[in-house]
Nucleic acid binder design. Structure first.
Lengths: 194, 194
DNA sequence: CCAATTTTGTACTGATCCATCCAAAATAAA
DNA sequence: TTTATTTTGGATGGATCAGTACAAAATTGG
């Protein structure tokens, strides 16, 4: 009994995500969000409480998408645990150098650096997401330990923290101008610790 | 034959550095810079071309300071090469958790993530700085290899890239809420690869 | 067709953005 | 003291910021 929406809310969040991903939180204006989503200001403020609220939704969507892709990758059991861990790092490198040559990096890492320390709810979301990824990686490592693929005497939780730190490290280095070959050697060297 | 300056330019750059470090480039307004330096707008714009120019100076000063501290640390030869590498990581962790509990992190990492991809001169500065740090770390590693402290059959350049990536990874993880004990175990595990 | 309800486009708010302008103040050389 | 030069404070510029107000448009139930 009212005028229906002309747009898809999920698609709007996706478009906002792309905008925040490309430019960062501060540098993305509400006008940029209107342009990216194709919506007017009224539609945006009628649907989302604020720029910040839209950012939280966009960030959640990004995490959901990325963790979904990771789950899918890890569920393919044609690879050993070790190959899976190396594959995780390779995918990061590929993403940094080919998928997005404009250097937008990873929205989670960008957010951890740019906004987490000034924004408690965002920091909490990042912490939850870290926990999710930690458990995913830890499960792979423990499987590798049972298979004899990874040394069983090492703490799986620590190794999982190490792998996730390697992801962040590779991403930071990529932004600092380190070339692809060097980062692949870093990925190989990291696996040496497993 | 003219009115002299009432302020010290270097101190002004230091103050600006603190401001950018605490809030990031975009979130630091020119008014914030006036407040932090204690200067009026005229003095700032008379001394520096723009906010961006002042940022480049502040970033250069940060790099100079941090690399100086690192040189000082590495020049103390009461430690083995391995202990030095572990010490580098420990200092990062200490800084993240105690020196600046407000979570400002590292200006170089923050800049790599927030501005490098949109700003060529800043990206170039980061790349140069990375090269400087790479050589410093590599020198330590090669010394360790000569001393039998570090496996001599590994590529020193790769290991140096790995150590620097570990720094970035630890910093990103710290911002994502990972606790100190976990990061220290990550530092230990990283050294396992050497 | 009418009434009720929601979305949408546009105009607008006051604040803040980075930067410039200009004249008063301060100093050194003449 | 005068003159030349530079710094400084404060006002100002136009643009943009996040967010709101409001009425026209669009739809469904009556």
């Amino acid at each position: 009994m009212a005028r229906p929406r002309k747009f898809d809310e999920v698609r709007a969040v996706d478009a906002a995500m792309e905008a925040f991903w490309a430019a960062g939180y501060e540098a993305t204006s509400t006008q940029d969000l209107c342009d990216a989503t194709g919506l007017g200001r009224s539609s945006i403020y009628n649907t989302f409480k604020s720029k910040h609220d839209l950012f939280e939704r966009a960030l959640a969507r990004y995490m959901e998408r990325k963790n979904g892709e990771l789950t899918e990758f890890l569920d393919d059991d044609t690879r050993t645990a070790r190959q899976k861990l190396r594959g995780i790092l390779q995918r990061i490198i590929d993403e940094e150098f080919t998928r997005h040559p404009d250097g937008r990096g990873c929205l989670v890492v960008n957010t951890a650096i740019e906004v987490a320390s000034h924004d408690a709810p965002v920091a909490a979301a990042l912490e939850r997401d870290y926990g999710v990824r930690l458990e995913m990686v830890r499960a792979v490592i423990e499987r590798g330990q049972r298979d004899g693929d990874i040394a069983a005497d090492r703490d799986s939780r620590t190794l999982a923290h190490l792998l996730i730190a390697a992801i962040g490290g590779i991403r930071v280095s990529a932004r600092a101008g380190v070339d692809r070959a060097a980062l692949e050697s870093v990925a190989d060297a990291t696996l040496t610790a497993f």
